[in-house]
Amino acid sequence: MKFIKHNNVLPGFGPTMGYTLLYLSLIVLIPLSALVFKTAGLSWHDFISTVTEPRVLASYRITFGAALAAAGINAVFGVLVAWVLVRYPFPGRRLVDALVDLPFALPTAVAGITLATVYSANGWIGKHLEPHGIKVAFTPLGIIIAMTFIGLPFVVRTVQPVIEELDAEIEEAAACLGANRWQTFRRVLFPLLTPSVLTGFALAFARGVGEYGSIIFIAGNMPMVSEITPLIIITKLEQYDYQGATAVATVMLVASFLMLLVINLLQRWSRRYAG
């Protein structure tokens, strides 16, 4: 970082900071605090028993488990995609590069309907998997597929610039010292990529945990088996149980906040690591 620390002569800190805090409070902080206040109507005991019901616990397991699996798949294939896109020229590379951002731009409901269409037993891919006993749509596997779809760009887009910035001399030096390509990758390149891969992983994970629109179309939504936490919130609202809904929502909110804080610390660590 080229951040110079001395007495700052640049103007405008007061107004820009003031505006930032005002806008942040109006749009994000005050509305989110409504959630916490609504939950506060519950006693501590009720709160705990609401957020630890077996059905809710099962949904945490499914949501966090599937998000973890999806982020893992994305970490592996995302790095591969980023590596290929940066290092190996092939026809149509630009187009493929642009396609990676599709999940950012495609509405989640459309993504969900489309994934269900492609992966259900009579879909383009599903019909080839079904004879082998692999069911994707309407199983926890479907949740993982949907989360993988929406999380992919995060890993690719965090790792890609780092691969681009890798210094060719390091690899050459490793080669001169007698390392083969695999050793170079494992011992030299991989440690350099790790912080950005972790960041991408964590971002994909955080996004997957909160996702709703695309998942309900492909999940099956069976209690204890394929019911995600955001659906639990909807279910509670359906019973006019606002406090129960906000209690579960608060748990998710705290989880996301901690997640992001860890990501930002990781980022800082990775920057220090990269020098």
Binding site: L24, I27, V28, L29, I30, P31, L32, A34, L35, K38, T108, A206, R207, V209, G210, E211, Y212, G213, T229, P230, I233, I234, L237, Y242, A245, T246, A249, M252, L253, S256, F257, M259, L260, L261, I263, N264
Partner: peptide, 21 residues
């Protein structure tokens, strides 16, 4: 981190908070 927060909040929650207010 606070600026990033809306990004990982479930869309269900982001709608709900405005209804609560």
């Amino acid at each position: 981190t606070l600026i990033d927060l809306p990004f990982s909040v479930s869309p269900v929650i982001s709608g709900l908070i405005y209804v609560l207010i």
